[in-house]
Amino acid sequence: MTFKLIINGKTLKGETTTEAVDAATAEKVFKQYANDNGLDGEWTYDDATKTFTITE
Rank of each mutant, 00 (worst) to 15 (best):
V29Y: 15
T49N: 12
E56V: 14
T49V: 06
D40V: 14
D40T: 15
M1H: 14
K4I: 13
T55Y: 08
F52V: 01
A48K: 10
G9E: 03
T2Y: 11
D22W: 03
M1V: 14
G14Q: 13
T17W: 14
V21E: 12
L5H: 00
G41H: 02
F30W: 02
K10S: 07
E19I: 15
T25A: 14
K50G: 05
T53L: 05
E56Y: 10
K4T: 14
K28A: 13
G14K: 12
L12M: 14
V21A: 12
A20L: 03
E56T: 09
A34N: 02
A24N: 08
D36Y: 09
L39I: 14
D22C: 04
A26F: 01
T53P: 00
T18S: 04
T49H: 08
T55V: 06
T44D: 10
A34K: 02
A26R: 00
V29C: 06
T17C: 07
T2F: 13
N8R: 11
G9Y: 12
L39Y: 10
D36E: 13
Q32C: 05
E15D: 07
N35D: 10
Q32G: 06
T51P: 00
N8E: 11
E15H: 11
T11P: 04
K13M: 10
T2V: 15
L39R: 02
F3D: 00
W43N: 00
V29F: 15
A20M: 03
E19K: 10
T44E: 08
L39P: 02
I6P: 00
T11R: 09
D22Q: 03
A23L: 06
D22E: 04
T17N: 06
A20E: 04
D40Q: 15
G14R: 07
D40W: 13
K4D: 02
D40S: 14
A20R: 03
K4F: 13
K13S: 09
K4C: 06
I6Q: 06
Y33S: 02
T18V: 14
F3A: 01
E42I: 14
N37L: 15
I7L: 08
T17R: 07
G41D: 02
D40Y: 14
T25K: 06
T16H: 14
T49W: 04
F52E: 00
L5D: 00
G38T: 05
T55F: 08
V21D: 10
T17E: 09
V29M: 08
L12T: 12
F3Q: 00
I6C: 06
E27A: 13
N35W: 13
D22Y: 03
D36P: 01
Q32S: 08
E56I: 14
F3H: 03
K31E: 04
L12F: 14
K50D: 03
W43F: 05
Y45V: 02
T17I: 10
E27N: 05
N37S: 08
K28P: 03
T53E: 05
M1W: 15
I7M: 08
T44C: 06
D47Q: 09
F30P: 00
L5S: 00
L12N: 09
E42Y: 12
T53K: 05
E56N: 06
T11V: 09
V29E: 06
T18G: 03
N35T: 14
A48F: 12
Q32W: 05
D47G: 10
E42P: 04
T18Y: 11
K10P: 08
T44Q: 11
V21N: 10
G14Y: 15
V21H: 15
T16I: 15
T18N: 03
F52G: 00
A23V: 12
A26H: 00
K13F: 10
K50Q: 10
G38C: 09
F3K: 00
T16A: 13
E15F: 11
Y33C: 03
Y45E: 01
L39E: 02
I54S: 01
K28R: 11
A23E: 08
A48M: 13
D36V: 13
Y33L: 06
G38Y: 08
D22M: 03
A26G: 02
A48H: 11
I54Y: 03
D36W: 07
A24T: 13
N37Q: 13
M1F: 13
F3Y: 11
N35E: 13
T49A: 07
E15G: 07
L12I: 14
Q32V: 07
N35C: 09
E56S: 07
T16K: 12
A48Y: 11
T49C: 04
F30Q: 00
T51K: 03
Q32P: 01
T18C: 09
D36T: 09
T51E: 04
T51W: 03
D22A: 03
I6S: 04
E15I: 10
V21Y: 15
T11D: 11
G41T: 02
K28M: 14
L39T: 03
W43Q: 01
M1C: 08
A26P: 00
V21L: 12
T55D: 06
